[in-house]
Amino acid sequence: MSVKHQLQPTPEVDLLDELSTNPELLFIALQQPISFNPVLVDITQSLTAGLFLSTALEEAHGDWVDLDQEKIKRTTRLTNGELKGARQRLRDLDLLHERRIGFPSRTQYSINFDKLKTMLVSLSRLPSQAHVQANGPTALH
């Protein structure tokens, strides 16, 4: 369970002084940034689904992959609800299949690469940037 902290304005601080007294600041500042392919947002019409799919594609090394949802939440900052909604959107689009296995049970994911390929080809046939302009940021969930 994560606790959300309200950021409070602070008086101007000297960064070097702050780093010497607060070494955790360096760890926070130097976390590896995440990136994802924006075309996955265009395909899914969902920022969260595009981000989850991008993360899943990075981890996919076979038909079924174990994705650590806690790691995904830490990395992407998606909430439980956003993660659930992203997975549902991908299942609705037939881009993601899930199964429960093992004891204790865990969820494995399979990306439907044939469907992804079909959607990428369809998107590429739209007039240049029409998919972005037609749907715009307000269409994203």
Rank of each mutant, 00 (worst) to 15 (best):
L30V: 10
Q31G: 03
Q32G: 00
I34P: 00
F36M: 10
F36C: 02
V39F: 05
V39N: 06
V39H: 08
V41G: 00
V41C: 11
T44F: 04
T44C: 11
Q45E: 14
Q45T: 10
S46M: 07
S46E: 04
S46H: 07
L47Q: 09
T48A: 11
T48C: 04
T48R: 06
A49D: 06
G50F: 02
G50W: 01
G50I: 04
F52Q: 01
L53Q: 04
L53N: 06
S54A: 13
S54L: 01
T55F: 06
E58Q: 13
E59V: 03
A60R: 10
G62K: 04
D63M: 03
W64C: 00
V65R: 00
L67C: 04
L67M: 14
D68M: 00
Q69F: 14
E70A: 08
E70C: 02
K71A: 13
K71M: 07
I72N: 02
I72P: 00
R74F: 09
T76Y: 04
R77C: 02
N80G: 08
G81N: 12
E82L: 14
E82P: 03
E82G: 13
E82S: 15
L83D: 06
L83V: 11
L83P: 05
K84T: 11
R87H: 07
R87N: 09
R87T: 08
Q88T: 15
Q88N: 15
Q88S: 15
R89F: 01
L90G: 02
L90D: 03
R91C: 11
R91A: 10
L93D: 10
D94A: 14
L95P: 02
L96S: 07
E98L: 15
R99N: 05
R99K: 15
R100N: 08
R100K: 11
I101Q: 10
I101L: 07
G102H: 04
P104K: 06
P104R: 05
P104Q: 09
P104M: 04
S105T: 14
S105V: 09
S105Q: 15
S105R: 14
R106K: 15
R106P: 01
T107C: 07
T107V: 15
Q108I: 03
Q108D: 08
Y109N: 05
Y109I: 09
S110M: 12
I111D: 12
I111K: 11
N112T: 09
F113K: 12
D114L: 04
L116I: 10
L116T: 09
L116D: 10
K117L: 11
K117Q: 15
T118V: 12
T118L: 12
M119V: 01
L120P: 01
L123N: 12
S124R: 13
S124C: 08
S124G: 13
